[in-house]
Design a protein around this nucleic acid. Structure first.
Lengths: 339, 339
DNA sequence: CTGAAAGCGCTAACAT
DNA sequence: ATGTTAGCGCTTTCAG
């Protein structure tokens, strides 16, 4: 066929119309006469014309791409949010550029860079540890947060982290547990704080004490879950139930205590957070709090597209419900089961 | 500061030079005089100028982006390859557009679309089930395969799937297993075939028989691993060791048999493939074949950038080594251990 | 070593 | 309803 790709000029020549008409036919078909429209469309087919997105974007002063900033692209938790984002962005003719804040030196600088570079029509932030101050850039593109964040007035999509945590604790308490511990995410992270708050509330509402030595620090990773297990094993007085701020930590934790001969839920009840795919495949299957990750992505994308279209920098904040999922990693405390 | 972003004209005006000089200073600093260079750079700093990538790309007849086609963005296996790709592409000023072949109706059409749309300077294919015929598009951008594929002469980065599988079988045989089974990936997938071939070779080289009823079909997912477990449990005569074509399947499998009261490795030895993060955190920790996923991404990106620069459509194929990782999910067969 | 000038391919006023 | 025209912001010959 044709060596080089056809331009709008070629189509215009073949169809015997002006380039403007070709452009209109492709973007707003309703404004051109039916006969010309057909002539143009067949010329498009004949020449194999495809619009040059770069030229179109330059002219329209847009970029056609959305940048997604996340802390770790290799984390399956985020990839499902990405899938949700893509399902909305792709049909809307936006490319999705993914940037990993972990790979570079300074995440905040990276964000500032994207904000000023004009490389994107909008940003989605999945990293809650970015500084709100950076967003002060004047003339910046619209930004949506798709996770907990300390920055106040940014449009966001979040889940009920606190309520989820409180529900987990309440469930354990109702099973008879009086000694309930918690493994947190990294300190300073907003997710960590909201789940910790929920944990505290849950204890308080069930009339249970909060013991500082039963609150272990992790960082959401499997490794840190395994480390928490070693700490738990070393405890003189151990909680009989544990709520972990992520399923990944629960996986690492359960594996480690099981290898040490502890029975779950016989000796210890375990609840995670997220409902990652593996949760149901563990032995015992992991009780957890489900977060609809794809939905988070979908909502964030819809919010952003809306902001881009209307040219606004503010917008509503979406709160997505979580769901408690009871599986086999919880049971009554050993004392009760025995008695 | 400035309401609208500065253009190259603004910089030229401030520096008292032509736009051409500004452009040169930024792209090939060595060809401008030291004094002018400094003047330009300080004008850039003063105006806060950032080059407009869209305009630059239009002029240079490139797009600045690479499209990555993968079957499932939510699969952590791919996200680590993505991380590797990004680590090379981002510094080279290429954006990475991710397209999910699973989300649309026809993957081959999607590929054909990207090949002709001129939306990318190159493609990376992570989906081995795409049709080689589609690649025949004339004038298409360079393409690199980052997985097994049936298309013959495309530059690619692959791992030693066959050898990995054979090593697993040999290891089990050396432990004394005579009855070794296999859970495959989906039929038709090239990965599935190479690992199955390696499995067969491994058996043959150890002088062991291949029993068709001990080759179960899965699809790489945890769910299919759990399904294979149910099949294995229903077998009249069971293999004492099993090699599964993916760790995800091994996770699903082990969870399911353990919940049915089977002990691993006491009653059954299990080997996976991939070395996903969770492998080491399971109880027992999973013996597997490690694939360096980040490296796969890095190599693929390097290969592609090289093709783009040199304008070639062919290139070398990279074969990456795998590594057998012995953990606790394998042991001698029960009969032997007892005797 | 630097400047002038010609577009890359497209869209959106503005005319007709 | 359609055509004319003026750029979007940049890079790159081609002269000087």
């Amino acid at each position: 066929m044709d060596r080089k790709t056809a331009t709008i000029q070629d189509v215009a020549r073949v169809a015997g119309v002006s380039t403007a008409t070709v452009s209109r036919t492709l973007s707003k078909p309703s404004v051109v006469a039916a006969t010309t429209r057909e002539a143009v469309l067949s010329a498009v087919a004949e020449t194999g014309y495809r619009v040059n997105a770069t030229a179109s974007n330059l002219r329209r002063q847009r970029t056609g791409s959305i940048i997604v900033l996340l802390p770790n692209i290799a984390n399956p938790f985020f990839s499902q949010i990405l899938a949700g984002l893509a399902s909305v962005l792709t049909p809307a003719q936006y490319g999705m550029l993914i940037a990993d804040t972990q790979s570079g030196p300074d995440p905040d600088q990276l964000l500032g860079d994207y904000l000023t570079s004009g490389q994107a029509d909008g940003l989605v932030l999945l990293d809650g540890s970015l500084s709100p101050e950076v967003l002060a850039t004047p003339g910046r593109p619209p930004v949506v947060m798709a996770c907990e964040w300390m920055g106040g007035d940014l449009p966001s999509v979040r889940v009920e982290n606190g309520r989820g945590a409180a529900t987990a604790v309440a469930h354990l308490a109702r099973l008879g547990h009086r000694a309930i511990g918690h493994v947190t995410g990294p300190r300073g992270n907003v997710l960590t704080e909201s789940r910790l708050d929920g944990f505290r509330e849950g204890l308080a509402s069930m009339g249970l004490p909060l013991r500082d030595d039963w609150v272990l620090e992790g960082d959401f990773s499997m490794d840190s879950g395994a480390a928490a297990a070693r700490q738990w094993l070393a405890l003189a007085e151990r909680p009989t139930a544990l709520f972990l701020a992520s399923d990944e930590m629960a996986v690492g934790f359960m594996g480690a205590v099981q290898r040490a001969g502890v029975s779950v839920p016989g000796d210890l009840s375990v609840v995670g957070f997220d409902n990652i795919e593996i949760a149901q495949h563990l032995s015992p299957a992991l009780t957890t709090i489900r977060q609809p990750r794809t939905l988070i992505g979908v909502r964030a994308a819809e919010l952003l597209l809306d902001m881009i279209e209307t040219g606004t920098r503010t917008g509503p904040s979406d709160l997505i419900e979580v769901e408690f999922i009871r599986r086999d990693s919880v049971g009554p405390p050993a004392a009760l089961a025995a008695g």
